[in-house]
């Protein structure tokens, strides 16, 4: 029985454990942490004692660890944070040398409720998993972070969503100022989920690359602009375009992609990969905003899908009508 050990003894046992132990109270303050944790975190028991966990480890803010602590204290439910999904969440290091090189330990974290009966409410237990995880994973994570901060879509080389949003805002203001029309086109690959499931993601990626290339060739830089808008969606910003121009261009693109004849056995529509296109032209005036422009192209795209896909539909903001592009 634990009673036989006594509190002092129990603390020694916790201190000697080959795993990290942090105990929090109801206010998410650190009540106790063991020697393993002090050594790996580089923080003394005194510097951590009674301090809010979130203040000592700001990296936990907004993370799944924070949610897990809430779950333990508020809902009494235990959580597990796997190294595969979180890896190096806390700033813990095997050696001072690792700390200098910012080489964090790979962690398996258990967050367990301790009940409402004593001051101790939540136990965070950390196991060192570094030995099991290859160095490549660290490199991969870094590549991933870089990818997210760029303005280009890594796969297709066209602009990404972030750049699209900025560009659309700029072009919108320009059109507003100069009283010019602004065209927007959204190109969506039909039944692309089924394609991916049938042919695998590598093949799916190749399709996206080919279609991006067609779109890039079809526009007039530097005025027009192509971006990958979502997983299987591309968006084209076409300043100065008229309804007639944009309809013709949409239909041309649809046909061009169809003539690529990329086999698609998973499609119920055709033997090859097809696209649906939603398009619109707006003369931004007064209170108008980019929402209306985006929603209009979206609505045209929804209509194209509803009408059976593999078509380009124009939505007129003037009279709210749909028109099949030809």
């Amino acid at each position: 029985m634990a009673g036989d050990l006594g509190n002092a003894n129990l603390c020694t046992v916790i201190d000697r454990l080959e795993a990290g132990v942090v105990i929090l109270d109801e206010a998410r303050r650190i009540l106790h942490c063991n020697r393993w944790f002090n050594l790996r975190s580089g923080q003394t028991a005194d510097s951590l004692g009674q301090r809010p966990f979130a203040e000592m480890f700001p990296e936990a803010a907004g993370s799944r660890l924070e949610q897990a602590i809430e779950h333990a204290i508020h809902d009494h439910l235990p959580s597990l944070l796997s190294p595969a999904l979180h890896g190096t969440l806390l700033p813990l290091y095997q050696t001072p040398d690792d700390r200098r090189r910012e080489k964090r330990m790979q962690q398996l974290i258990h967050v367990l409720p301790l009940g409402d009966d004593s001051a101790a409410r939540c136990l965070i237990q950390i196991t060192d998993m570094t030995a099991n995880i290859s160095r490549e994973r660290l490199l991969r994570q870094q590549t991933e972070i870089l990818r997210r901060t760029t303005t280009q879509d890594q796969l297709t080389g066209v602009a990404n969503r972030r750049q699209f949003d900025e560009r659309l805002a700029t072009e919108f203001h320009k059109a507003q100022r100069n009283h010019h029309p602004l065209g927007l086109m959204i190109v969506d690959l039909d039944l692309f989920n089924a394609y991916n499931t049938h042919y695998g993601r590598d093949q799916g990626d190749n399709c996206l690359i080919e279609i991006a290339a067609i779109l890039k060739n079809a526009v007039r830089p530097p005025f027009d602009f192509v971006a990958r808008y979502g997983g299987d969606e591309f968006a084209l910003i076409l300043p100065g375009s008229s309804e007639k121009d944009i309809c013709r261009q949409a239909e041309n693109l649809r046909l061009q992609i169809a003539t690529l004849a990329m086999a698609n056995a998973a499609s119920s529509l055709a033997k090859h990969l097809t696209v649906s296109i939603g398009t619109t032209v707006m003369r931004p005036e007064g209170e108008a905003n980019t929402h209306t422009l985006l929603s209009s192209a979206d609505v045209a795209l929804y209509q194209a899908k509803r009408d059976g896909r593999n078509r380009a539909i124009y939505f007129s903001l003037e009279d709210g009508s749909f028109k099949l592009c030809s």
Partner: peptide, 14 residues
């Protein structure tokens, strides 16, 4: 395969 057990465990846990 080294991590699928724990990752899956966490997803289920969530």
């Amino acid at each position: 395969s080294e991590f699928e057990q724990e990752a899956m465990c966490e997803i289920g846990n969530i």
